[in-house]
Amino acid sequence: MTQTEFLNIVMPFKDKVFRLAKRLLISTEEAEDATQEVLLKLWNNKKQIEGYKNVEAFSMTMTKNFCFDKLKSKQAQNLKIVHSNYEDGNTSLQKQVELSDSVNWVAKIIEELPEQQRLIVQLRDIEEYDLDEIAEMLEMNNTAVRVALSRARKTIREKLTNTHNYGVK
């Protein structure tokens, strides 16, 4: 497999890998490193990935596992990723993005969700994957994904309603 062929396969979903990593690791730098790592791993195993029928799903699973490993090693070192460094290097996008405070609230609320639910919200509501695909990526069954998704959506809505009613801090 040549470099261009590889890039053709990887390009469509590299942003998704990055966003998923960022959802779990919070910090942009960490997510960039993780994405790089995942892509390099794919490149090194390019002979095997030719045999996979769904490279994208495989990569997402890999990203998830990689991030969990990262988080685990962080916890072992007693180092927590600080949420306050949630900053985007991409300022122009950030400006264009910043609709209002409530958008940031959504980000914060999602950050507070359990990892599993965070993953599922990311994969479903942002990346718009099919439930079956998500189930495959996360190595769960379909119903469990649906339940977790529903729970996450309800939590987000409740918390948003609260902040909305009481006014944004």
């Binding site: 590299k14 942003d15 890998v17 990055f18 966003r19 960022k22 960039e32 994405t35 985007d88 991409n90 996008l93 993005v97 609709l99 209002s100 409530s102 958008v103 609230w105 959504v106 980000a107 509501d125 942002i126 990346e127 987000i156 809505r157 948003l160």
Partner: peptide, 14 residues
């Protein structure tokens, strides 16, 4: 806000 966030977040690139 919620759906706005989802939409915007999808534009973030590596």
């Amino acid at each position: 806000a919620m759906f706005g966030y989802f939409k915007v977040n999808k534009q973030e690139q590596f």
